[in-house]
Design a protein around this nucleic acid. Structure first.
Lengths: 136, 136
DNA sequence: TTCTTGACAAGAATTATTATTATGTGATAA
DNA sequence: TTATCACATAATAATAATTCTTGTCAAGAA
C-alpha cells in the first residue's frame, strides 16, 4: 500500500482498487478482467485508467506483463522469478515456483549475454483431463 | 511441396509463396512481415490470405505460432521442439536447439499432465552489448 | 501547479464476410 | 494410359468489423 507513495505515484482510489485486485491474485488477469472486477466498486472507472495504472506499475517493477496469451496481455503481481504451466485445453495458467538450472551450451548461445529465462510448461489440467483422457 | 495436397489443402501460388518464404526462415516473421515479403512477387496478395494460410498451416502442424512478442503473433517453420533467446534490447530472436531436462516437482505440478515446454531465454545480443555494455 | 481521471478518438493486429476466382477430382474422350 | 472438361469445393481479395491497446485532452483532485 505504501508502495505507491514511495515510488512517486499518487495514491488514488482507482489505483488502490486495481492494486488490491492484483495482490495475491494467481489468475494472471487481463486488463479487461481487471476492469470488470474493479468496475463493481468503481462504476465510473475507465479502461484507459486500468491500462495507465498497469503500465505505471510495470514500469516501477511491481507487476510483470506476461506474453503467454497470444490474444491479449496478462498481468502478474508475482515479480519474483517464476514460471508458468498452461493448460492447453482451458488455457488456465498455474504458477510454478521452482528453480531450474539452465545452461545454454556456448556454441549455441553465441555471444549473447544471458540475463534470465522464463519457462512455459504445457499440459492438461485436472479438470480437463479428469481420468477419461479423451483425446480428440 | 506435396505436403499440401496430401493433407487436404489446395495448392495455390499464394500458398506456395508463403510456404517458400517460411521454409528455413529463422527470423520468426509476423503476418505483416510475410505479407510484405510475398507481395513483391504477388502484388495482389491480400493480408487476409496470409492469415488464412498461416492458420491452415498451423492447424496442420507445419508451422507453430509464437507468443514471444506481446504486440503481434510470430510464426516459426521449425516445429521440432526448440527454444528461443530474445535480445531484450533489439528484440531479435535466436533459435536454441538444445534439450533441457525439466522435471517439475510433483507437489508443484499437482494433477497436471505435462506435455511439453518452451523456454524463453533473455539476454543481450552481440550487436546491442558490443563491449561497451552501456546500461540505460 | 502537477498529476490523474475519464471519455473518446485513434491505431494496430486480427478476424469475419462475401462475391469472385482458381483448384482438385472424377468422368469422359483420345 | 494419358489428356481434357465440367463441376463442386475451397481459396482469394477486398473490405468491413472486432478486439486490444494507446493517445489526446479537458476537467478535477492533490
Amino acid at each position: 500500500m505504501q508502495k505507491f507513495k514511495n515510488i512517486g505515484l499518487k495514491l488514488t482510489p482507482q489505483r488502490l482498487a486495481i492494486l488490491g485486485f492484483l495482490e495475491g491474485n494467481p489468475d494472471h488477469p487481463s486488463a479487461e478482467d481487471i476492469y470488470k472486477a474493479v468496475s463493481v466498486q468503481f462504476p465510473t472507472m475507465s479502461l484507459a485508467t486500468v491500462y495507465n495504472t498497469l503500465d505505471a506499475l510495470r514500469e516501477k517493477g511491481y507487476i510483470i506483463e506476461l506474453t503467454i496469451d497470444p490474444a491479449k496481455k496478462r498481468f502478474d503481481p508475482f515479480t519474483k522469478m517464476h514460471h508458468h504451466l498452461i493448460c492447453t485445453s482451458c488455457k488456465r495458467v498455474k504458477d510454478i515456483h521452482a528453480d531450474f538450472m539452465l545452461d545454454i551450451p556456448e556454441q549455441v548461445r553465441g555471444d549473447f549475454r544471458i540475463t534470465g529465462n522464463h519457462i512455459e510448461f504445457y499440459g492438461v489440467c485436472p479438470v480437463c483431463g479428469n481420468g477419461h483422457e479423451r483425446r480428440i
